[in-house]
Amino acid sequence: MSKPVVATASLAGCFGCHMSLLDIDDRILQLIDLVEFNKSPVDDIKKFTKPVDIGIIEGGCCNSENVENLIEFRKNCKILISLGECAIMGGLPAMRNGIPIRECLEEAYLNCVTVDDKIIPNDPEIPMILDRVYPLHEIVKIDYYLPGCPPRADLIWEALTALLSGKPLNIPYEALKYD
């Protein structure tokens, strides 16, 4: 029987959630026995090459590329997991949500004391910034949520192994945290 396929991505995140995934320590060897990785920064596969069982996404959506990537994941993954505070509620990037986008751009590219050539970048190659940062589940359907900043390694491990084995989720109290 072929192994379940896992894909991961970091959208508007800091890669901390991916770091926490690596933080499962030597269980990473078990994980590699259990699953096969497809599109993911872990193996640097850039495009989906087969249908994926579990997609794991860190970071919310702050620009058009994040949205395209997320929709691509939803299309290719049977189960989609929202990993970490940014994916679930926007996190740190969402601290700009109360500030109009023009004000944000002007502050960063025009008024900031350290900028030299005062231009707001507008190259077609650069993804369009969204009016605010969106949690993943406001854009596509999400099947599971794993909170934390970053989510504790034990939480990720527990959730993944429960999903893979079909056993009920049994999260230790210390593993569910929002910080």
Binding site: G98, P147, Y178
Partner: peptide, 22 residues
């Protein structure tokens, strides 16, 4: 508030975030 979230095993709220201006 956070501790109650932990106690109830809250993973993500069922309601949309309002992002109010405060």
């Amino acid at each position: 508030l956070q501790a109650l979230g932990y106690r109830y095993g809250l993973m993500a709220p069922r309601f949309p975030y309002l992002f109010p201006k405060r």
